[in-house]
Design a protein around this nucleic acid. Sequence first.
DNA 1: CTGCGGCGTTAAGATAGCGTTAAGATTTAA
DNA 2: TTAAATCTTAACGCTATCTTAACGCCGCAG
Lengths: 231, 231
Amino acid sequence: MNKGTVLVIEDDKMIQNLMSTTLEISNYAYQIAPNAEQGILKAASYNPDVIILDLGLPDMDGIEVIKKVRSFSNIPIIVVSARIDNEDKISALDAGADDYLTKPFNTEELLARIRVALRRKTYTGEETVQTSVFTNGNLKIDYAQGCVYVDDKEVHLTAIEYKLLCLLAKNLGKVLTHNYIKKEIWLDDNGCDSQLSLRVFVTNLRKKLNAADYIKTHIGIGYRMLQQGKN
Amino acid sequence: MNKGTVLVIEDDKMIQNLMSTTLEISNYAYQIAPNAEQGILKAASYNPDVIILDLGLPDMDGIEVIKKVRSFSNIPIIVVSARIDNEDKISALDAGADDYLTKPFNTEELLARIRVALRRKTYTGEETVQTSVFTNGNLKIDYAQGCVYVDDKEVHLTAIEYKLLCLLAKNLGKVLTHNYIKKEIWLDDNGCDSQLSLRVFVTNLRKKLNAADYIKTHIGIGYRMLQQGKN
DNA sequence: CTGCGGCGTTAAGATAGCGTTAAGATTTAA
DNA sequence: TTAAATCTTAACGCTATCTTAACGCCGCAG
């Protein structure tokens, strides 16, 4: 299982090989671009989680590469360079690089810095908290919290009840056949008489959501959730 | 006009002075903490944009400081250390540091790396202003100090108990699946039967937070912390 | 009217999952 | 090193949940 995708922009064959081995062992998916032009193209098409960039490319100044990539993306860029001059470091960092390692570098350190970049991604990624809340009449399902409320009072549901309710809610107004529901809830067709169980679960759900009757029966076909206010 | 706020956690007077001068010239607002304890407290109260941390503090291991700060905040941490050993670098980065500079460092490079950290902040936009103290009913967690109080009386928790409690607290009201909890607490999937252990830890936590029942079980799914006052 | 199919409801047995305790294993501190 | 704290594991009772069975209701067709 891969831990993330890495784009290596590097012309030196030796270092390409070193990177390949290192990334492979650590279970990263990666691509290698041997020059700036391909590097920029791949940054756009491959959309990696991290870019490792050698500043000393044959066809373009490294700083330019950073700027070009930054013109369309915030993908973390870790610069790896033989130039130890501070001027280079600073201009690379100010151009938009996230980190700067000088050759020869320790592969363990490189991996650690890749982890830092990836961690940051997942942090900021998870922060886009989608308040995915479903409401219908006085029924409320907070998918993020995994809780269900009726008249703003929490109702405790079992795992299957919750699954069933979500299924109906996500298909508000649509009739779901018995077979479809059974497949969604009892993924593996275990021997149980799910047709019968389903009847019981619907009963229990209706009891717990007592207010209105949200769940309509379609005899011989299945169930559907009604949109409150309409019938 | 200042470009951002910096907290320097450093005990060496010489370097303190160097930092002061550098930051002042570059128009940063800053504060200096001479040891880990004050550093952590200021990280919480001052809520700076960047933390510059010396690993070699007198009162606490630097890695510990990183972990403590990370328990309540994602403020970028730039480590500055005399230790050039790769082990140190990697463990600091993996503990949550964002960057690592070895002494003696070039001040221009430090400034450039501060700019990188600040730039990132403006990218991600909203800063996750987390209070360093969490309260819920008569439960109180002081992330900065790593202490837990029930009815204003301190309760001693083990490392895992604390981690588990923080996890639940940070997701107040949310159902956390067993798998998610296990991944967060036993990062590396060591062979242990964490499902079983989890049950024991929850029991122990409940015993120690005896007052109300903060932790609700969702059978077959996981656990969640209840907001006191609601049901 | 009567029989039948499908559904709703209730209750009881089976079962999986949880809470709890305690004893070994392991780690940490002295 | 020993001692203490902590973590892991096993065992067992218990509860929530799931499944199944039974029965009554309704609508429809004969």
